[in-house]
Write a protein that binds this DNA or RNA. Structure first.
Lengths: 200, 200
DNA sequence: TATTTACCTATCCGAAGGGATAGGATCACG
DNA sequence: CGTGATCCTATCCCTTCGGATAGGTAAATA
């Protein structure tokens, strides 16, 4: 079995690579960035499986996966991550990933997961995916979440209103209610809270 | 050599543990949280070295290290981290850590680093420590940095002025210049930029 | 000494944020 | 069918922010 594992932390990457080699993977190549990973696939022709870290130079979340699937549509690619939320996993699978491996997964499961994905089956821990998002965002409604996303991008109420096709007053209402809900003092504080909890 | 490695990501933790075992460590215990690590030290009496992840339930940055050193003053404790900045490493060493291991370190260096620390020598990669903070904050002055810290806490200009013993107008001046310097559209954007770069 | 840099204060202004209150529309659920 | 939740709009009001402009001090430096 021929693998490529890409993670920007040398220690973590090489440790997992060693674990896979010990588990019976014939060839485990490594990369530290998305461009390196792309070059490695180009050079090798293809791998049985490519593991991409969700937080790595060049990835920008799910964008890196999309880029790799666009460049090498037939390549089996999985995402590995320590911080991503269930929604990110679902997005990755929707974008064509063959699997999603949380770093919190037991080490003894990795060999099985990798073998499964290399053979063409989709792998994703059920108990991870079934975690719902709502509780993680303090019970914000869909609109409020959208507005909060705009706040985090540093946009003004007027700009948010334009892009959501709403009146500015409506945005202000959402801002007021959402800051109350999450216990923020103002929009800046709300943005920081959203950040700290990794909502976006 | 008897080690304890604590990291909340099972996969990473066990992979590194396997790497260390392969490197000749007789006994490598593991823990997934700070309380677990404390309990493990309590149960074992002591280890030649304890590796604590900087981002782990119960750690709160450097606080977890301080707690362990307070509970077991004689225990050699090192910090391992994937995201921490040089200043955090210096703080850790000041707080009594026997070393600081960035996860970006080459895997082949870990055995040597661990052996070194277990034998009582302080270990910290020189090229990591020597990275200076100033350039990371876009050339902000001391006052501007203080104001930015206040913004990130969600405080208003008036509140920042009070706690810094300044006039509100002065704070506004600093806000204006610092947002320009870091290329932010407004205070909220500035706070997000500071967060993304891990300035606080 | 002159210049630069960081720092502090002031006034004035328009734009944006934050809050109260009130009302209407839609949809799901009991 | 009523009730509640969510969402949208509206009008007033006051606070805060962001910016322009115009000063001043102190310390380091050329």
């Amino acid at each position: 079995m021929r693998l490529l594992i890409a993670d920007d932390h040398d220690l973590v990457r090489d440790a997992i690579a060693a674990l896979l080699r010990a588990g019976g993977c014939d060839e485990v190549a490594v990369a530290g960035t998305l461009p390196e990973a792309l070059a490695a696939v180009q050079a090798a022709g293809s791998f049985d499986l490519v593991l991409l870290d969700y937080d790595m130079p060049g990835m920008e979340g799910i964008e890196g996966l999309i880029e790799m699937k666009r460049t090498f549509p037939a390549q089996a690619v999985a995402i590995i991550s320590g911080v991503a939320r269930p929604s990110a996993a679902r997005e990755a699978l929707d974008a064509g990933a063959i699997g999603f491996v949380p770093k919190a997964m037991p080490a003894r499961s990795i060999i099985g997961a990798v073998t499964l994905m290399a053979s063409g089956s989709v792998f994703a821990p059920f108990d991870f995916l079934k975690q719902e998002e709502p509780p993680s965002q303090g019970g914000l409604s869909a609109r409020e979440t959208e507005v909060l996303r705009g706040i985090c991008a540093g946009r003004t109420n007027k700009e948010i209103a334009r892009e959501m096709d709403l009146q500015e007053v409506t945005v202000k209402l959402h801002v007021r209610t959402l800051t109350r809900k999450i216990g923020a003092r103002n929009r800046t504080h709300a943005a920081m809270i959203a950040r700290e909890n990794g909502w976006f």
